[in-house]
């Protein structure tokens, strides 16, 4: 579904991605793990068109995305839940969700997606008239995911959904991620520092270190990998 090949991205003189290649098959949950500054966010931002690559290719459903601006890429069914959630803090939960459906003209489809979001996160329904900035971190993450779902994604990229969230809510959110994939057939690329969790829910994983992919394989193999155990899985 998504294939990234030999992607080089830099910020001025700083090289953040040094030729990464990976692919995500339709229907899968694939994870991209790596520690601080490895380049995970940079990879997602490049795929969704927020950054331009210096060289390399991103192809989605057979189409080259490299020349498309971000607002066009969303329309292809590729939605990005950014790091730090980026909720519209002064807009209500309802307006945040409406923004997610910005490109959706079909009212029936919008209503269906909204029902899907409320079914996943009933709490959002209770907080519809509340502004985004007043939600807890976990609720904001739910809203960020809900907002992306309102865009009718075929493919969802999640950047560290566990970041800054109460541990109790992390497992809920990960269950929902699995549900989104399993019950609704949405392909997922999950970026995480929390490798243990990410490898539990995914079927395939890539390990990113200072702008390069250093390891890849089925998630269950990676879970058993001694090198990964030492650095990411806490022994």
């Amino acid at each position: 579904m998504l294939s990234v090949s030999d992607l080089h991205v830099s910020y001025g003189a700083i090289t953040a991605l040094n030729g990464i290649t990976f692919r995500v098959e339709a229907g899968a949950i694939v994870t991209l793990i790596g520690s601080n500054g490895a380049g995970k966010t940079t990879a997602l931002r490049t795929i969704s068109g927020l950054l331009r690559a210096r060289s390399g290719q991103v192809s989605f459903l057979g189409e080259d995305l490299s020349a498309l601006p971000a607002h066009r890429i969303v329309g292809r069914g590729l939605c990005h839940v950014p790091e730090g959630r980026m909720i519209f803090s002064n807009l209500t939960v309802e307006e945040n969700l409406a923004m997610g459906a910005y490109l959706q003209r079909d009212a029936a489809l919008k209503a269906r997606n909204l029902a899907f979001v409320f079914n996943l996160f009933p709490r959002l329904k209770e907080r519809l008239k509340q502004t985004g900035g007043t939600l807890s971190g976990g609720e904001q993450q739910m809203l960020a995911i809900g907002r992306a779902i309102m865009g009718q994604p075929k493919f969802l990229m999640l950047d560290e959904p566990s970041l800054g969230i109460a541990p109790r809510l992390i497992s809920t959110i990960f269950e929902k991620i699995v549900e989104i994939n399993r019950d609704h057939g949405i392909t997922i690329l999950l970026v995480e520092q929390n490798a243990k969790l990410a490898l539990e829910v995914s079927s395939y994983g890539y390990v990113l270190e200072t702008g390069r992919i250093v390891l890849e394989g089925p998630s269950q193999d990676l879970r058993a990998n001694p090198r990964l155990k030492a650095t990411y899985l806490g022994g």
Binding site: P69, A70, V74, P82, M86, L91, Y102
Partner: peptide
């Protein structure tokens, strides 16, 4: 309004 709050998120919504 969305753009004035967060241009990046607005772009990611298709604006």
């Amino acid at each position: 309004r969305a753009l004035s709050l967060n241009p990046t998120a607005a772009q990611l919504a298709g604006v």
